[in-house]
Design a protein around this nucleic acid. Sequence first.
DNA 1: GGTAGACCTGGACGC
DNA 2: GCGTCCAGGTCTACC
Length: 317
Amino acid sequence: MPTTLTITPPGDYVLARDFCSYGYFLLEPNHWEPETGSAGRVLHLEGGAAAAVIDQRPSGQLRARFDRSLDRSEQGEARRQLSRMLGVDVPRSEVEAFHRADPRWKKSGRGRLCRSPTLFEDMIKTVTSCNVAWPSTITMNRRLCEVMGKRSPSGGYAFPTPRRLARAKPMTLRSRCRVGYRDARIVELAKLYVKGRIDEAWLSDPATPGDDVFRFLTSLPGIGPYAAGNIMQLLGRYDRLAIDTESFRHARVVLGMDGTDAQLSKQLAEYYDAFGDHRFRSYWFELWDFYESRKGPAHTWEKHTTGTTFTASQLNK
DNA sequence: GGTAGACCTGGACGC
DNA sequence: GCGTCCAGGTCTACC
């Protein structure tokens, strides 16, 4: 008998808004079904892969229907992974604190950002988003799942585990998953993960200074200043920006700034200082607002059409 | 500490 | 349809 789990989110939680809030909701093995307003995802659990379809009931509760039966231990793990992915673990009080710092988002209720079920997946997804156009990031993640991920009973693929990627040959990742020169860096990152050299509890601990986290992350293979900033927001640390070329486009087109990239970086830092510990969220929702002004609400985006159109040339039109 | 150039892929563009 | 150019962030070597 396939398992169905019920998850009670914070009272202000809206699945369509809070899941469709960051580009990773468009990357395999994540799915969003605009027609039914449901999310899909294959999770890697102790007993193998299991696909879940998640929707929100009129009561506000989330329902996750799996394609196989999960034992008690797997149910606990599935809850933990889904909570992280959906942002259910971000309490209402935190979203309200963000709205006090930046009231522009109070009306829409935005405050949560979609992320992956695991930090490892967030790290690899970030590496696949560096130095590449968005359509290539989509391809890399799809192929990583198809080539390296476990298959669920209903046929979808999970994201590969650290153990699986640590065993992979770099050339296989390059030729079959199209990750290019990122091949060895991905394998090295997975090996560090397997060896326990990446301490998620320490990285997530609010008591750990942000500068220490940033320094550690930039010491990892394939992770530079942009990737470290992005991983930090995925860790729930929103006090610093992740500056890439999209940031410069945003600075020029939306914020009306001018100058060299170095000058823009400085201006962006000064502008977002006003939002204190929430500066990444303020930055991100401005960016997301711009995308939605061009493409319509994110929860209406079709993965294989709208979802693939985020290229620099399209956005600059 | 700052910077130039290589890395790899695929979209955009010109013919 | 084909060939060429270029965008994209990190890393290494060099000054």
